[in-house]
């Protein structure tokens, strides 16, 4: 005849379930915006709004999830058998992973941001062919050119030309 679960077993079950939900939520926080703004897919204003909100709050929310997960893990560790302890430790990996991913800019991993923009005089620019296209600006007598091949990779080049801070984008 089956016996009713002891208070401790029922508590452990609920804690395990909560830990499971926490993992799902933390992974959704990073996976949903990544999915919504993936390249080569159409974006909608509503989808972008969700992606923005999740990206904005994910760094904080995933850390809170990790802290809550640690608390649950400690309570599950006590009195747990070796396999349930191993499971608890494994459960912390996706939580820590989500907290790390929330701080990770995959777009800047695909296209490395340009640190300091460095320049050479036009006469010495032997890496640019005559037919190569450049983005060019002249401000207060100072002229600068940014080869499109380079800007198209970085997407953003930041500079100051003739005292004017500019973001060159392509």
């Amino acid at each position: 005849m089956p016996t009713a679960p002891s208070p401790s077993r029922s508590r452990r079950r609920w804690a395990g379930f909560a830990l499971f939900l926490l993992i799902l939520a933390a992974l959704a926080l990073v996976a949903v915006p990544a999915f919504l703004i993936r390249p080569f897919s159409p974006q909608t204003p509503g989808g972008l709004a969700v992606a923005f909100a999740l990206r904005r709050w994910a760094p904080l929310a995933t850390v809170l999830a990790l802290i809550a997960g640690l608390a649950l893990a400690v309570s599950l560790w006590r009195g747990g058998r070796w396999w349930s302890r191993a499971l608890v430790v494994l459960a912390l990996i996706p939580l820590a992973g989500a907290a790390w991913l929330a701080r990770f800019n995959i777009f800047e991993r695909m296209f490395a941001p340009l640190g300091d923009s460095r320049f050479l005089p036009a006469a010495e620019a032997n890496w640019v062919a005559d037919g190569d296209m450049v983005l060019a600006v002249e401000r207060n007598g100072e002229a600068a050119a940014y080869p499109v091949r380079q800007v198209a990779y970085h997407h953003i080049v930041q500079d100051v030309v003739g005292g004017v801070p500019v973001a060159v984008t392509y």
């Binding site: 923009s117 460095r118 320049f119 050479l120 005089p121 036009a122 006469a123 620019a125 890496w127 640019v128 062919a129 005559d130 037919g131 190569d132 296209m133 450049v134 983005l135 060019a136 002249e138 002229a143 600068a144 050119a145 940014y146 080869p147 499109v148 380079q150 800007v151 080049v157 500079d159």
Partner: peptide, 18 residues
């Protein structure tokens, strides 16, 4: 947004992003 040759003709003393 012009060719490097066209830009250089007008701005021989300009600077180019490395």
């Amino acid at each position: 947004e012009i060719s490097f040759a066209a830009w250089k003709r007008e701005h021989p003393n300009g600077r180019v992003l490395r």
